[in-house]
Computed example of a mutant assay.
Amino acid sequence: MTVGQERAWREHWPALGKTVSELEGTLDVDAWFGRKAPVVLEIGSGMGETTSELAKREPDVNYIAIEVYDAGLGQLMLRAEKLGVDNLRLLHGDAVVLLTEHIAPESLDVVRIFYPDPWPKKRHHKRRLIQPEFVRLVASRLRVGGTLHLATDWEDYAEQMREVCDGEPLLRNVYADEPGGWAPRPDWRPVTKFESRAEREGRVSRDLMYERR
């Protein structure tokens, strides 16, 4: 980690963060934020560029980001500090463990998974996050009417995401009538350096939006 990221961990983690492996029982989100509000969970916040901007724009939601990389969480805390964000909490660890053991069924309003690791080699596809069992787990934690929003710039992964989510009975593709079932790219999602690079390299980003039945 950089010096700044290490400082962010020292100064901000005690107030903003929790480690999944140290959680006990169901996470009391209302108590953690000190208020009751819609809950957004972002899985895989990376270096926090999108996460910090969205949390800033959505002050009326309780925004939770989970990430496995220390440096990414450190950078996210730096970005949040710079933007004056106070409705963001961070989790370090495995999203599957979090959802299985510490998030109550039908308690999340939105789950966002933007640009998960594509594992582009075919022999590694089984490592991809978006698989039927995982999507079933996510769907079970969404409130009825809640939203699962996915985005990727890898065409075959986008198609896999669509196939997996279309096969989950608890989910309905909000844009099923659009060409390919793809959601229009939302104007509110920031264009990151990562997405810009993908576009330069000829990869088209795809969004998918599903509603919990």
Rank of each mutant, 00 (worst) to 15 (best):
D177E: 15
E211C: 09
H124L: 13
K122N: 12
E195C: 06
R206C: 10
L148P: 06
S45H: 03
P169D: 09
G17E: 06
M209L: 14
P59T: 12
L54G: 00
F194W: 12
K122E: 15
G17V: 03
R57S: 14
L16A: 12
N87S: 05
V111I: 15
P190K: 00
S21G: 14
P132C: 07
D86V: 11
L98N: 00
N62Y: 07
E24W: 03
E178I: 02
I130G: 00
L41P: 13
R123F: 10
R89N: 02
T147P: 03
D177W: 06
L41G: 12
G74S: 09
T147A: 12
Q75W: 00
P105V: 03
A80N: 08
R206V: 11
S107A: 14
V29L: 14
V40I: 14
R127T: 04
N62H: 13
R189D: 02
I43E: 00
A104L: 07
P14T: 08
G17W: 05
G4S: 14
R206P: 06
N87Q: 04
E159C: 02
V164T: 10
V85T: 11
L108S: 08
V85W: 06
V138C: 13
A37T: 04
A198L: 12
P120Y: 11
R79K: 13
L90K: 00
N173H: 11
W9M: 07
E155P: 04
G145L: 10
E42C: 02
D187L: 10
L108C: 05
V3T: 10
K126Q: 07
T50S: 14
E42P: 01
G25C: 01
E106A: 08
M1Y: 11
R213C: 09
Y175Q: 06
E22Q: 12
H124S: 13
V97L: 07
Y63W: 15
V164R: 01
D60Q: 12
A151D: 08
G48H: 08
P190Q: 03
A37V: 06
V144A: 15
R213F: 05
G44C: 03
V204I: 15
P59N: 12
I113K: 01
A15M: 06
Y63H: 12
P105R: 08
E67W: 07
H12D: 14
A176H: 03
V164M: 01
A55Q: 07
L83N: 01
P105G: 07
D70L: 08
G145W: 10
S205T: 15
S205N: 07
P105Q: 04
R185C: 10
I66V: 14
A198E: 11
V20G: 07
N62G: 08
L41F: 11
V191A: 09
E195N: 01
V40C: 05
G25K: 04
L83P: 00
W182M: 03
L73H: 00
E155I: 09
K56V: 05
D30S: 14
P38E: 13
